[in-house]
Design a protein around this nucleic acid. Structure first.
Lengths: 346, 346
DNA sequence: TTGTAAGCGTTATCAT
DNA sequence: ATGATAACGCTTACAA
């Protein structure tokens, strides 16, 4: 009761600031919403007092009335790969600069999507949702998102139809894998590789099938026999085991594509430390992603780069455009890939 | 207007569910708060209809009245190390199981804390805040948090006083580094190491100084000369460069402690790929953390393990206890460390 | 430019 | 066990 001035423990409210500044609480609200009109000196006064009182508008209350939570839901698999960690990282920084906060959710590693999780997440009313998880039908997602329009990653492939634009509205990030894969295959061919193997990611994941499919296409175009498939799951350990199988049980290979960089590390370690083979002299290796540690000397991996920064910028553009024009038709962004040549090919 | 039943685009409210179930909206609220009393069959009916209508209580509205946002703020440095990524990962999973969501914030890499960020974060009204960032005085943090009681990581050291319990209330996670470091030093000594170097982390960070300090103490107790210090910043690249300096400009060492595992990888790669030294024959290496990739064959690192899962469980316990008893005096949890022996010592 | 009134979707309090 | 009422802190009409 001795706290009418607004100091002390507990949160200052707009009312307290208004009282101290001798203005109505509405003016306080306006002072914090730069687009509204308020006499500049009055705004300055209010902001100064707000800072003194350590006042920040309550986003929950604001969300209730404005319908904007400034929360962006991000769903990632249970055990985050390096790529995903780095993407969440960059995304959070970018969103924060735009006044949004990242709300992180984990789902099962098997790349399926849990309806319970969606319902749970919806309670927080995110303005937008990015799922780094696959096998979620737009219809399922749409059922659980009210305002939010989902963003899907798509890997266009010649001969495949564009995904139907008729389903629920969703925005799309198109990743063009062809350039990077073509460059990689050409380089391997240039160094004499004939028998190329592919150490896969999680088999039914879209990223994996798209990579395998494009690899197959490009190899066929260039007159190479189809790749041998060794089954992995994007993890180091699975790729390690798959590589050993490939050489001990199977027929080996001149070159190995791994579905991601972490898998490529497993391949490299299996080749060198378990099979006693030299890279790139005996076997050449190419990864996907170009994560931060791919340049580390022990691996120094040649890899198909998905530019993380560019990708995050594209995602943020999609989110902001959608929030600005909630009823716009499907939005698109397109990303290129390219080969980064290091020491595992040559 | 044709939407009175609650179907279609847009969010279902408690009111709509109540209407369909022929109950008051209060009963709907009660159905979702398991501790309140409601006739079981009525609750079942309401929950069924809620599911049909795809209704979930709005957390923002709930937060407004209950004072609980069910949001846990997590502040991490701009560029996340592997350890931090893995910790955020595990923490999110654990919190999600308890009905909380992780709200992620990034701050500058220099381990300082931005007041702007704190003010920004406070707007979201997190129930609790965990900062993986150092050099934040409890007073600074307390100024920006109303309900939330901060959690600090502390590295107790003999001869140093406990941090004052008189400042603003904060809970504490005590990490006992001695056991792991003692085991490591003993092992190195057992294999004949005399001259031990320490490749540091960010110099003014608490984790770094605590590690260096404890290492120095243990080495002195065991009759070893003080460690040579090579300055790093917890990153691969800095450790790589520091190691080269240590041998090219400085006097080298029999064994190297790195302030964290990622730094140890840089040390290993510099030794092997740049300096042409063998590990562990010529130089032995020990890291800190035991991150997931420390067991990868190329590194196979002997390291002082901070059990991530245990640490996260301790953090979650602190959070939950604090939320249950907001006025309890300072809470504590204690964690042990231990040496994980792999291939870089021997 | 400023103030007044209404309401966002929930839960706490007090009834019954 | 259930319902009516008020309140949470803010913003968006609308009015002055």
């Amino acid at each position: 009761m001795s706290d009418a001035g607004g100091m002390g423990r507990g949160r200052a409210t707009a009312e307290m600031v208004a009282q101290r500044a001798n203005v109505s609480r509405i003016s306080v609200s306006r002072a914090f919403n730069s687009h509204t009109s308020l006499k500049p000196e009055k705004r300055a006064l209010i902001l100064r007092i707000a800072e003194e009182l350590n006042y920040t508008p309550d986003r929950a209350a604001r969300a209730l009335v404005s319908g904007r939570s400034h929360l962006i839901g991000v769903i990632v698999p249970d055990v985050c790969s390096h790529w995903e960690s780095q993407e969440v990282d960059a995304l959070t920084t970018a969103l924060q600069n735009e006044g949004f906060a990242t709300l992180l959710f984990k789902t099962r590693t098997d790349y399926s999507m849990d309806e319970k999780l969606l319902a749970y997440m919806r309670g927080f009313n995110p303005d937008s949702v990015i799922a780094f998880v696959e096998n979620v039908k737009p219809t399922t997602l749409a059922q659980f998102l009210d305002r939010a329009v989902p963003i899907y990653v798509h890997y266009p492939h010649p001969g495949e139809p564009e995904p139907a634009e008729t389903g629920p509205l969703h925005d799309r990030l198109n990743v063009l894998q062809r350039p990077g894969i073509e460059q990689a295959v050409a380089l391997l061919q240039g160094y004499g590789a004939k028998r190329i193997a592919y150490v896969s990611g999680v088999e039914r994941s879209q990223a994996n099938t798209a990579r395998e499919h494009m690899l197959r296409t490009v190899m066929a175009e260039r007159g190479l026999a189809p790749p041998t498939i060794a089954v992995g799951d994007f993890s180091y350990d699975a790729a390690y085991a798959a590589t050993i199988d490939l050489f001990r049980v199977g027929d080996g290979a001149d070159a190995i594509f791994a579905a991601n960089d972490v898998g490529a590390f497993g391949v490299l370690d299996a080749l060198r430390h378990e099979l006693g083979l030299r890279v790139p002299e005996d076997v050449q290796v190419v990864g996907f992603d170009d994560i931060a540690q791919s340049h580390w000397k022990s691996y120094n991996l040649t890899t198909v780069k998905f530019d993380l920064e560019e990708r995050v910028r594209a995602l943020v553009r999609l989110i902001l455009r959608r929030l600005k024009t909630p009823d716009a038709p499907a939005l698109h962004e397109t990303l290129q890939t390219r080969l980064v040549v290091r020491g595992t090919v040559g």
